[in-house]
Nucleic acid binder design. Structure first.
Lengths: 184, 184
DNA sequence: AGAATCTGATTGCAAGATGCCACCGGGTTG
DNA sequence: CAACCCGGTGGCATCTTGCAATCAGATTCT
């Protein structure tokens, strides 16, 4: 009868900030979404071993279960391997792109980020809403299986971000080599 | 010697998203900042009793300590009361405004928010960067004590958001009264 | 065929975080 | 001088996290 007390949803409040924190307010959920979104990691094992932060398998299993229950992620069988599951972002998950852009921008400005890992955040923030839209459209193709009329053969936002990351890595490696060789 | 292992900063990675989560990745930190930012709650007791979510005093004390250590918040004595402390947002904290705007927009779209608590998020998202800038400038005045040349006597962004919230509340109350009286 | 490997997980356990509530010592107010 | 307000602490039960070992089924290698 009381509409504020639903069966399985004792929310602390109806505030958007609070409700978002109830879903994403921990140290791992957004890391998982980040890796699916920017790293295109779609299998349990890829998510487990691919992230630099080193998530534990039980935590990963739990977070995937929660994200699944919250509808940010969907799960499907991999036809090429009867045991593999493919995790995909839903529209709800894809629309976190602007949130990542802002968080990335704030973190890059105020926290001790490494250059190669912040280049993506920098480009995403500089790109603005039009780039976010393009990226989300791209994610809809790869995660929701929606074909797009445009951008045939184009590099794609994710790949461009990845390329920028690798470019910085390469530059830093060569600089390190040069300095180790005594070239200034 | 190993530059990846600093004295007191064993970060999981240098990724901006990750570093932000290490600072704000829990269910309470952003609630505290939200109340300081949008509710103008500056004292311990206001923060303790003012939030709808009901934070515990030890958690609040711990979060204020952390936010202080991270430099998102500053603490000063209240001249009017020797026992009171005034907590203020720093520039680092103030610049979370765009993050709140995006999180609020996402939460409003995808989660079961209450109308009166999401009106602020709606206005903030619709206002776009120019409104965010105005709000941040306003926060700099009230939290950093910087005087601004412009907007003398203007209503102010925070007050406008608050007014919109109360307007919805009032409308809902009168609607409830009307429907209870059978006026459909 | 059989062994090794890979798959998405689960379990046990220790440590830490959270939630709740009582309480504290000092300052202020009536 | 008593009542109340102030930021904050301490105890304690419970929930969450982190880590390593492990699992059963599917696949691949030899």
């Amino acid at each position: 009868m009381n509409e504020t007390r639903k069966t399985a949803a004792p929310h602390r409040s109806g505030c958007p900030i609070n409700l978002t924190l109830e879903v994403l307010g921990d140290k791992w959920s957004l890391i998982v979404v980040r890796d699916m979104m920017f790293g295109d990691r779609r299998h349990f094992r890829e998510l487990l071993t691919g992230s630099e932060e080193g998530i534990a398998s039980n935590i990963l299993a739990d977070r995937l279960r929660r994200l699944l229950a919250e509808g940010l992620v969907s799960k499907a069988d991999d036809p090429s391997h009867k045991q593999k599951s493919i995790y995909s972002l839903t529209e709800k998950g894809i629309e976190l792109v602007p949130v990542f852009a802002m968080i990335g921008a704030w973190g890059s400005k105020w926290l001790p980020v490494s250059e190669e890992l912040s280049i993506r955040a920098k480009l995403l923030a500089e790109g603005g809403p039009s780039l976010w839209d393009a990226f989300m459209e791209e994610l809809r193709e790869t995660h929701l299986g929606l074909a797009s009329a445009q951008n045939a053969g184009e590099p794609g936002v994710r790949m461009r971000l990845q390329a920028a990351y690798e470019e910085v890595l390469a530059r830093k490696a060569s600089t390190a080599l040069a300095s180790r060789a005594g070239v200034v």
